[in-house]
Design a protein around this nucleic acid. Structure first.
Lengths: 189, 189
DNA sequence: TTGCAAGCGGAACTTCGTTTCCGTTATCGT
DNA sequence: ACGATAACGGAAACGAAGTTCCGCTTGCAA
């Protein structure tokens, strides 16, 4: 029922090219990559971009949704993995940090969830569940502070993304160092 | 020598009105407050705004410079004050948090120092000096982690501003809570 | 092979915010 | 009081980015 009538072959191909180009453009330029530029990168006309994604926002949304879905996958895997809970929590943060550092668009989306609230909501429940599990395990093992909440982790992740993004203009900032310091505040004393 | 020829009375008056209006506009709208709106608030024409501040950026810069100057004042006062070093460090952060929470423009400027690097540099040296002193005192008192640096504090402050700004769209975020958790990572163990 | 709907390209248009320009008005020294 | 001139107001020009439109092309079914 959801299999929206098979698309024409070239249309599908172009859709993919646009997504790929957009991914690259947003990764380097951040949220202010331009539609004509994305079209050029994809080797198509702007019209084509707009047929597949009615507005720029829709395009960004598609990419963010995809990113969050992958992150949620990772979070679930980490939550279910072996090893010390604390180390796994840090590992999850490291993976997010790396992703944000190499993709300004993602960094901006995470750092300023402002507009993307609705978009994220769908995947966020999975993320929350995985995070909750990690926190519970960590608390049980006496590694995570007793009053830690999922919101705390959200805030730290947003900040991490913000720092990662800023590293582009402030070489004295380092998301790895930030991770080391700020996440230490989540540890049990 | 720097006393640029006395300005005409009305010019000075208007300049002040513009600054005040801009302060208010940026505080509520953030960086994307609009020039015509600022002019209207000030009760002057756009032309007048542009005579005093050649571009929007120059206007923002003037405000940011002012804000940072005040913050540097506060930091110096806090660094020289009585009391436990840790408590004073937290107090400084609290003051910044409060200011950012009530002024979106400031929050954005601090959270994404990107463009404002040059602007801030002038006051930043005072800020750095005050912060260094607080950290040294804190370390000496065994309250601050041994490897803490001024950059760590900068990053935490930027993050704090970012969280404060986000509270407008994410009621589940709280800069006070963030301060509690993240700054704990700066404590000596 | 042929018909035609789906898809394409990209110039042109819209929107919206910044900045300029110039006729008018207010200030200030004489 | 008066004239020179600094400052003002705000309509209009400009510029940048997103979006629309339409004539042309291409894939697919008959």
């Amino acid at each position: 029922m959801s299999a929206t009538k098979p698309m024409r072959a070239d249309a599908l191909r172009n859709r993919e090219k646009v997504l790929e180009a957009a991914r690259a453009a947003f990764a380097t330029e951040g949220q202010d990559a331009q539609m004509p530029d994305i079209a050029k990168r994809a080797g198509v006309g702007v019209g084509t971009v707009y047929r597949h994604f009615p507005t720029k926002e829709a395009l960004v949304e598609a990419l963010v949704r995809d990113h969050f879905s992958r992150i949620a996958d990772i979070a679930e895997a980490v939550a279910a993995a072996e090893g010390e809970p604390w180390d796994r929590l840090v590992m999850l943060a490291e993976i997010c940090g790396e992703r944000c550092a190499s993709d300004r668009g993602l960094a901006a989306a995470v750092a300023g969830s402002r507009e993307m609230l609705g978009v994220i909501a769908g995947q966020e429940s999975r993320l929350r569940a995985a995070t909750t599990r990690l926190l519970d395990d960590g608390r049980a093992a006496g590694q995570v502070r007793a009053d830690a909440t999922v919101e705390d982790v959200s805030m730290l992740m947003c900040s991490l993304a913000n720092i990662a993004d800023m590293e582009n203009s402030r070489p004295d900032f380092s998301w790895r160092r930030y991770l080391e310091v700020a996440f230490d505040g989540m540890r049990a004393r």
